[in-house]
Amino acid sequence: MPTSQNRDGLVAWAVAALVVATVLIGTFAPSSHGRSGRGSPAADASCAEWSDGCTICRRYGDGIACSMPGIACVPKAELCQRHSGE
Rank of each mutant, 00 (worst) to 15 (best):
A17D: 01
P30C: 00
V20S: 01
S4G: 13
C54I: 05
S40V: 05
G85T: 01
L79V: 15
G63P: 05
K76E: 12
D52V: 06
P75R: 15
Y60R: 10
T27C: 07
G53D: 08
R58V: 08
I71A: 14
P41F: 01
P30W: 09
S84P: 00
C80S: 01
A48C: 11
T3H: 05
R82W: 06
V19W: 00
T27W: 03
A72V: 12
C57T: 04
H33G: 11
A65W: 06
C66F: 01
V20Q: 00
A77L: 10
S36D: 06
S32A: 12
T22F: 12
S32Q: 09
S31Q: 11
H33N: 11
G53C: 09
P75H: 14
G53V: 09
V15T: 15
V74Y: 03
A29N: 11
A77M: 09
D52F: 00
R58C: 00
C47M: 10
R38P: 14
G70C: 02
C54L: 02
C47L: 10
M1R: 15
A21V: 09
I71K: 12
L24F: 13
A29Y: 10
G39K: 00
E86W: 14
R38I: 08
I25C: 00
D8T: 10
I56N: 08
A12C: 14
F28W: 11
S84I: 13
P41R: 01
A48W: 10
S51Q: 06
V11D: 00
A48Y: 09
V74C: 06
A72K: 14
A45F: 05
V19R: 00
L10D: 14
D44F: 05
I64T: 10
I25V: 15
P41E: 07
I71L: 14
E49V: 15
L79K: 15
L18R: 02
N6E: 14
T22D: 05
N6I: 14
V74W: 04
T27G: 04
A14T: 10
C54R: 02
L79E: 13
V19Y: 04
A72W: 03
H83N: 10
G53W: 12
A12N: 09
A48P: 12
A65I: 09
R35P: 04
R59H: 09
C80A: 09
G37P: 02
W50P: 03
A21C: 08
R82G: 02
P75A: 13
I25Q: 10
C73Y: 03
G26K: 07
G39E: 11
Y60M: 11
D62C: 08
G63C: 05
G53R: 02
C57P: 00
V11W: 04
C66K: 10
V11R: 11
L24Y: 04
Q5F: 15
P30Y: 11
L10E: 15
P75V: 03
T55C: 06
S31G: 04
M68W: 14
G61Y: 06
T55D: 01
S36C: 12
P30R: 06
S31C: 10
G85A: 00
R35A: 01
